[in-house]
Computed example of a mutant assay.
Amino acid sequence: MLGDLIAALDRPEVISNVLATLDPELAANLNERAARVSMPVGDFSAGAVRAFLDEADDDLWFQLVTVMRKSEDPGLAAVETILRWVVGT
């Protein structure tokens, strides 16, 4: 489920749908961070998720798995949690 969602983040409609589910504050922070590096927010967000997957330590993975276990939509919860960590909210 998470792997499928992450693999699909390259598709503009998928990342748009994910971003549409975020709370407004997180979405605004993502837009601001993406603008600072002159990237579309979708590309920035997909890249941030992939960077997390490549670089996260065991403690962050444990926290992420805990969030996923408690969620009705674990893949979406994981992506949202990663994006929150990226923008520091």
Results as ranks from 00 to 15, higher is better:
K70D: 08
D54I: 11
A78F: 04
A46L: 05
L2E: 03
A46N: 07
G3R: 11
L22P: 00
A28F: 08
S71W: 07
L19G: 05
E72C: 12
V87C: 04
D58V: 09
A28R: 15
L2V: 05
F62V: 13
P74L: 05
L9D: 03
E55Q: 15
D59E: 15
L5D: 06
K70V: 10
L76C: 07
A78D: 04
F52K: 00
R84E: 02
G42R: 01
E25V: 03
V79E: 04
A48C: 09
V18E: 06
V14R: 00
I6Y: 07
L64N: 00
E32M: 07
V65C: 08
G88E: 09
T66D: 13
T81K: 14
L9V: 00
R50K: 12
T89A: 15
S71I: 11
T21I: 02
R69M: 09
E55K: 14
L30N: 00
G47E: 05
N17P: 01
D43W: 01
A7R: 13
K70R: 13
A56N: 05
A34R: 02
T89C: 14
L19A: 08
D57A: 13
S45K: 01
G88K: 09
L83T: 00
V37Q: 08
T89D: 15
L5M: 06
G88W: 04
S38Y: 12
L5T: 01
N31C: 07
V65F: 13
N29F: 12
D54G: 12
V37M: 08
W85Q: 02
N29L: 13
D54K: 14
G88V: 01
A20P: 08
V14H: 07
A48T: 10
L76H: 10
N17Q: 15
L2T: 05
E80Y: 04
S16H: 04
P12A: 00
R33H: 14
D43R: 13
V86N: 12
E25M: 10
I6G: 03
P40S: 03
R33K: 13
A20L: 00
L30G: 03
A77D: 12
